[in-house]
Design a protein around this nucleic acid. Structure first.
Ligand SMILES: NC(=O)c1ccc[n+]([C@@H]2O[C@H](COP(=O)([O-])OP(=O)(O)OC[C@H]3O[C@@H](n4cnc5c(N)ncnc54)[C@H](O)[C@@H]3O)[C@@H](O)[C@H]2O)c1
Ligand SMILES: NC(=O)c1ccc[n+]([C@@H]2O[C@H](COP(=O)([O-])OP(=O)(O)OC[C@H]3O[C@@H](n4cnc5c(N)ncnc54)[C@H](O)[C@@H]3O)[C@@H](O)[C@H]2O)c1
Lengths: 212, 212
DNA sequence: ACTTTATTGTGATTTAATTCACAACAAGTT
DNA sequence: AACTTGTTGTGAATTAAATCACAATAAAGT
């Protein structure tokens, strides 16, 4: 069981690159094409595949269609993944209006909020009272949720999600959530992303100055 | 010069944990407190600090105020970082209305778009025609930008940003941007984040089944 | 049929990151 | 003043990840 996050992220990138190549009319691909496409070495590509038992044809490379199928299987893209959002604020609004998830087999089914002003029972993606979350999650067998409530209420909201049966949270609130250990948290911390970017811009800037 | 991204991200997390501790009234902290707070080992904390020449007091731990100052210096938080957004769509709207960046010393100064319907010259954060970006970036000495345009226009928009003098891009478009090598790209790919989450939820679920 | 060429698949090696382990030492205690 | 305790700081050891290197081999050419 591979638990190297970077490795799994590379699989997603291979998949995306393969979609592009396929749509361009390509049928086969070599490890070095994929390597170029996502910016890693060709051995990294082959090693990643080897880890998951994906094989190609010596001399002949890999067949794109079959590769996509295998990667899809590993990444759970063989069926549509139903997802909910908790906290129907600005960020949720952007996510709910984004068309890009569907083509990845990710379907945002509903959002939940505490603020009655946000409720929209009959919208395309309904916004429902948080009290209805548990029933919804159970009856739709939802396993993954996005957490987009303010920091102050985030841990409590997460606990409600876990209690409802959610096993994975994509967390936008800038704190470290405590979670049961059969549950996964992926954090998207935009403050930290920007701060990190600033650091690298600064050190690259300084490196430039040194050369003078 | 430390270029280990995870290490720099940990510095940000230490800093955030330290803010909390300080606001709770603490004055000193030990490496194991910080370790607990962000979920790493105490040696990791000390090693990280050691790498940047940060020292504490044997037996006495670290003084929070001085630690914050040093971390701030390393992460470039000793002054406000001016940032622009290119693409004033849904995501940009969420970012522009988010109050959380300011307390981190990150100020979104303006957004730029090609769609005249989006222009808002006199808004608190103005939305301006993309043609005005270069002047703005030069005269405000902006080094960092957020890219939030659709995938199809992303590389072109990025090139315009580089030409204007931007040295770091936080990229939300789901593609790999080509960039000059004195420039840094940090990608936030939400499709991949969700896909990754689904993978880990699936394998943890399967692990559970095995035990039966 | 035989040779050349191109590419995979993976064990061995290297490099990078993390953890270990403990000497150094400051602060308190007897 | 000697002893105890608790914590840092870091070199050494370990672990994890990436890269190298090349045998295996399929396809194409002669
Ligand atoms: N908007 C951004 O650009 C941005 C950037 C970085 C981080 N974040 C983080 O993302 C999260 C969401 O940000 P946002 O801008 O969308 O916030 P927002 O204030 O626009 O929306 C938050 C929503 O959550 C709802 N809510 C509050 N408590 C709740 C609860 N217990 N259960 C259900 N709903 C609840 C509120 O009614 C509101 O509708 C925050 O944690 C924020 O720190 C946002
Ligand atoms: N909204 C989301 O939740 C979400 C999720 C994942 C990824 N993304 C990615 O983030 C990016 C932005 O998403 P969004 O939902 O805000 O899109 P959006 O369509 O709401 O907004 C895009 C904006 O960019 C402007 N634009 C287009 N070309 C431009 C150019 N060359 N220069 C300047 N402006 C230009 C458009 O006029 C529009 O206002 C996209 O690449 C999208 O794939 C968004």
């Amino acid at each position: 069981m591979i638990t190297n996050r970077n490795c799994i992220i590379r699989l997603s990138r291979y998949k995306n690159a393969l979609y592009r190549l396929r749509d361009l009319g390509f049928v086969k691909v070599f490890s070095d094409n994929l390597a170029d496409a996502i910016g890693v070495t060709a051995s990294q590509v082959r090693k990643d595949f080897s880890l998951f038992g994906i094989t190609g044809n010596r001399k002949g490379g890999y067949e794109i269609a079959s590769l996509l199928e295998k990667l899809g299987g590993i990444l759970g893209k063989d069926r549509v993944e139903r997802v909910i959002i908790v906290g129907a604020g600005h960020l949720a609004y952007a996510l709910m209006h984004y068309r890009g998830f569907e083509k990845e087999g990710i379907k945002i089914e509903a959002a939940f909020d505490i603020d009655p002003l946000k409720f929209a029972k009959n919208a395309q993606i309904p916004v429902l009272p948080i009290e209805e979350m548990k029933d919804f999650v159970v009856s739709n067998n939802v396993k993954v949720g996005v957490l987009a409530v303010p920091e102050i209420g985030a841990q409590r909201a997460a606990d409600t999600m876990f209690a409802a049966g959610i096993k994975g949270i994509l967390n936008f609130a800038p704190l470290r959530l405590k979670a049961p250990n059969d549950c996964t948290i992926n954090n998207v911390n935009l403050e930290i992303e920007l701060e990190n970017l600033v650091y690298f811009v600064n050190i690259l800037g300084k490196k430039g100055e040194d050369k003078i």
